[in-house]
Nucleic acid binder design. Structure first.
Lengths: 109, 109
DNA sequence: CTTCATATATAGAATAACTGCATATGTAGA
DNA sequence: TCTACATATGCAGTTATTCTATATATGAAG
């Protein structure tokens, strides 16, 4: 009966991924770890959400990927922002801020 | 090709409706107007989103409805929060705040 | 030799928001 | 009068995204 609510609000995952990739290339697993870390344990991105999102972003040429050796000597697919991706990040950042502010107004309202 | 993104983040509409109903009963059309007003023109809830959401909330007994005469003498369906609805509002409020804060941490991070 | 952390990936289900349409009434203006 | 607009509710079908569950594989630790 009581189906659990999604961990993430639909539409915010791309922003989280893009922001996490901004400092430099990172593999999928690392992105999820980093989001969990920077959100102080709050946002646990599921693999079944993460990889489809990465593929989607790659298809749109917002990120690009390359197989490389990771720090522990194992192969992993490293994702990085394209130029389009940086623009997209800026746009989504602004959009989120406007949206959160609007919600805030309604909640005060 | 370029399908427009949703105006609302999935999962936030219920919160907006509940908060808007908190001061007292209001009909659907009025809810949308009030959200547009308090969000300072930012959040324009579509009818195709609003009414399904209201029916959903009524089915879950979070709101209840009654046909009444509105201020201009016409009939309209007035929705109000149930006791469950007030609890739900409090829960969703807290959830939103935690979520927005978590996103904020990632964006600073 | 078994288990755990690392690492990627897909299939199918669930949910919710959107566009577009249908319907109806009262009011204001041409 | 007729036309348009604001008020008011509602459904059908589409789209998008997240979730659960599952599959695969390797290196390190015990």
């Amino acid at each position: 009966m009581d189906s659990k609510k999604p961990e993430l609000l639909q539409g915010t995952l791309d922003l989280l991924i893009l922001k996490t990739l901004a400092p430099g290339p990172l593999h999928g697993y690392g992105i999820a770890q980093r989001i969990l870390l920077t959100s102080r344990g709050t946002l646990d991105v599921q693999q079944g959400s993460l990889y489809p999102a990465l593929h989607r972003l790659e298809r749109k040429q917002i990120v690009e990927s390359e197989w490389r050796e990771s720090e522990n000597g194992r192969m992993a697919k490293f994702y990085s922002l394209t130029r389009t991706g940086r623009k997209q990040l800026a746009a989504e950042l602004e959009q989120w801020q406007r949206y959160a502010q609007a919600i805030g107004w309604v909640l005060e309202g």
